[in-house]
Write a protein that binds this DNA or RNA. Structure first.
Lengths: 204, 204
DNA sequence: TCCTCCAACTTTACGCTGTAAACTTTACAT
DNA sequence: ATGTAAAGTTTACAGCGTAAAGTTGGAGGA
């Protein structure tokens, strides 16, 4: 008979979810290097070998945490775009702002997400609709795509630009001169490019 | 008296350089996770504790390898820009091509370089001249900087774009649909944006 | 020439890590 | 009640970074 309660059959309520949550907390508090199987298990209150029954080793746990992190990332993108209003330029700028904010506020999780392989493993069907991360990006960029242009080119441009900026900023590559996150300096280059792109928006 | 021969006083010829070279080889052959102190020492033919006399732990060795890798990266940028000829658009495109190629051909080293903090630690004076990586980028972008515009905005745009594209491609985020490195598909988005930027070049 | 010193390297040791195997406990179906 | 499989524990092992103690060999002063 099916388990109508949703509870796991033994001991712990939902160890799998607890381990993922513990991992995210460790990631937030102590960074990527501190994310170990044994620490996650200890924080969840189980023995160090317990995670083996729920994940395929450390790589499996990292992947599950990345998937959960990506889901939070996707939801933040949706919220960010919403506050951007109806103006296409406002929406895309708000989206980029949300992207960078997530990276700055969750550096360990952000790094983990983008070191775990293709985004497609987090989203079953990238063409499903506006609920997917790629769907959010695609629809937000749509007003800026001229006729006779592959939309993917524009999407890849915007994605590469904001991701590269976020990554370089996060890694500290720009140097201490650029930090800490001063939003005015932070978004100036992004805004400038978006104005370039938005110079000739093709409605519909 | 000073050592005129340049040789180290004891046993090994130049263990420090040998350890860095071993590290780069391990990085190339087996990836970032395989880069350990003990493996570097073993490949260099010394005991596992020997590196402690030349580097400040694993972090120190990684930093030294990153610095050496960044130097090779910088030289490849210089060569790439040279083959781009005199046309500003050709030069900047060639530079981006070299950037991406280095990332694809040296994924472990590329990842290591951009996870070791500010670029300024690799270059004493970023404003020194065209020999520095930032100098190469700045001078190559110069023809595209309109009057009344902070050059850094354009430089940051180009850098973020090509770095974001390289990083996302390298991490496999785009998915298997984008790989393996097919240069035509690979550079299409970059070229498209560079044409946007280059639409209104301001000579000198 | 001999002596001393010290940097370079080795050896040993410790705690932490991921992983595998054996063992124990619990819930469920028969 | 009984068998079975899942869930968690215990034990064990090799590899890791790091620290401390021990060893070696060459350089420089007497």
């Amino acid at each position: 008979m099916a388990d109508l309660t949703g509870k796991k059959p033994h001991h712990h309520g939902d160890l799998r979810a607890a381990l993922i949550q513990s991992g995210i907390e460790i990631l937030t508090e102590s960074g990527l290097d501190a994310l170990t199987l044994r620490r996650c298990a200890a924080r969840a209150g189980v023995s160090h070998a317990a995670p083996a029954h729920h994940f395929d080793g450390l790589a499996g746990l990292r992947g599950a945490i990345a998937k959960e992190g990506f889901d939070r990332f996707r939801q933040q993108m949706l919220r960010a775009r919403a506050v951007g209003g109806q103006d296409p330029k406002g929406r895309i700028l708000s989206l980029c702002r949300g992207y960078l904010e997530f990276a700055v506020e969750n550096p360990g999780l952000f790094t983990l997400i983008f070191s775990c392989g293709p985004m497609s493993q987090f989203e079953e069907d990238m063409n499903a609709g506006s609920a997917t991360a790629y769907g959010v990006l695609r629809e937000t960029c749509a007003p800026f795509v001229p006729k006779d242009t592959d939309p993917m080119v524009i999407e890849t441009q915007v994605w590469s630009l904001i991701h590269g900026f976020s990554h370089l900023f996060l890694a500290g590559t720009f140097g201490p001169g650029h930090g800490p996150p001063d939003h005015h300096r932070l978004f100036a280059p992004v805004m400038a490019l978006l104005q370039e792109i938005g110079t000739d928006p093709a409605p519909k």
